[in-house]
Amino acid sequence: MIRVGLTGWGDHPSLYSGVTASKEKLFDYTGHFLSVEVDTSFYAIPSKENVQKWCQDTPDHFRFVVKAYQGMTGHLRGDIPFESKNDMFNAFIECANEFKFHGKLGMILTQFPPWFDCQAKNVQYLLYIRQQLKDFEVAIEFRNQTWYAEPVVQQTMNFLREQQFIHTICDEPQAGVGSVPFYPTVTAKKALIRIHGRNIHGWRNTGNAENWRKVRFLYDYNKEELQQLGDHIKGLETEVEELYVLFNNNSGLHAAKNAKELQGILDIKDVGLAPKQLNMFEGEL
């Protein structure tokens, strides 16, 4: 099964029915896609109450890919806002367990920063992640090319298989050591493709943090590029039980459009979507 979705559900106006309140955006989103990446969990671990509501507001077949908190993956600068590292992991595990309890957890995504390179201490940290998150399906996303260098890349993939990690396949600009190649290899019964765009200038930009983020993911895939991605996805589909494809090129509002275009290329007709709301009074006022 292929699950196409987006990162976050709050910034895709083309998916909402008219003027949609923030609390209703997730419902509208589930009328279009059967999966979503919870990216807010990277910045703060969601409360149990929020997770319960999200799960209750989504159809039975809907799945969440929950992004690991930034303190777990080495992004956080300064001290973690917990008494200990174990407290941090336990708080995240409690959150993930709530998704799992409702049957809505697709996987946990651990995205590591560009400075997380292929060296012994970082391999040991991946083993620590595996131990801490032993009860979950966990995807690993690298942002450093050393994990894909020859002949290391085969060792990387073998390690992910041995630890039952999901290899995150990335489509992103090829902009030096702080980016990774598109490497369509699966290492578990599920697979994850994250589509970041191909904006090389934005990927390298080190200016103002807010503007840099907007520029980095500013990209609109053309039909040929989406067709090429579709060909890879069709090949990978036969190797796994579930294949998640998440568009992260959000800043120019291209993600939803590109995801819809890819669904058309793959002839995906999702079953179990939420009913799309209709404006029953259109033209009567």
Rank of each mutant, 00 (worst) to 15 (best):
W115L: 10
F116C: 04
D117N: 14
D117E: 12
D117C: 15
C118Y: 15
Q119Y: 10
Q119P: 08
A120R: 08
A120S: 11
A120E: 11
A120Y: 05
K121F: 09
K121S: 11
N122I: 03
N122K: 05
Q124S: 05
Y125P: 07
Y125V: 09
L126A: 06
L126S: 08
L127T: 01
Y128R: 07
I129W: 01
I129N: 01
Q131Y: 00
Q132W: 00
L133G: 04
K134T: 00
K134Y: 00
K134A: 01
K134P: 00
D135Y: 01
F136A: 02
F136N: 01
F136D: 01
V138D: 00
V138L: 00
A139L: 05
A139H: 03
A139S: 07
A139E: 03
A139K: 01
E141T: 10
E141I: 11
R143G: 11
Q145N: 14
Q145M: 15
Q145W: 13
Q145I: 15
T146M: 04
T146I: 04
W147V: 03
Y148N: 07
A149L: 14
A149S: 13
E150R: 13
V152T: 15
V153R: 15
Q154D: 15
Q155V: 15
Q155N: 13
T156K: 10
T156R: 13
M157P: 11
M157E: 14
M157W: 09
N158F: 03
L160M: 08
R161A: 03
E162I: 10
E162C: 07
Q163S: 00
Q164W: 01
Q164G: 01
I166E: 05
I166C: 03
I166F: 04
H167L: 09
T168C: 14
T168G: 11
I169S: 08
I169N: 12
I169W: 12
C170N: 12
C170E: 12
D171M: 13
E172T: 03
P173N: 12
P173W: 11
P173Q: 11
P173K: 06
P173L: 12
P173M: 13
Q174L: 11
A175R: 02
G176M: 06
G176I: 07
V177T: 12
G178H: 07
G178T: 04
S179W: 07
S179M: 10
V180C: 10
P181H: 10
F182Y: 08
Y183K: 09
T185R: 06
T185P: 07
T185C: 10
A188L: 11
A188I: 13
A188D: 13
K189A: 01
K189C: 01
K189F: 02
K189M: 00
K190N: 08
K190C: 04
K190Y: 04
A191N: 05
A191Q: 09
A191E: 08
L192T: 09
L192M: 08
L192W: 09
L192Q: 06
L192G: 07
I193W: 05
I193E: 04
I193Y: 04
I195G: 12
I195F: 07
I195K: 05
I195R: 06
G197L: 07
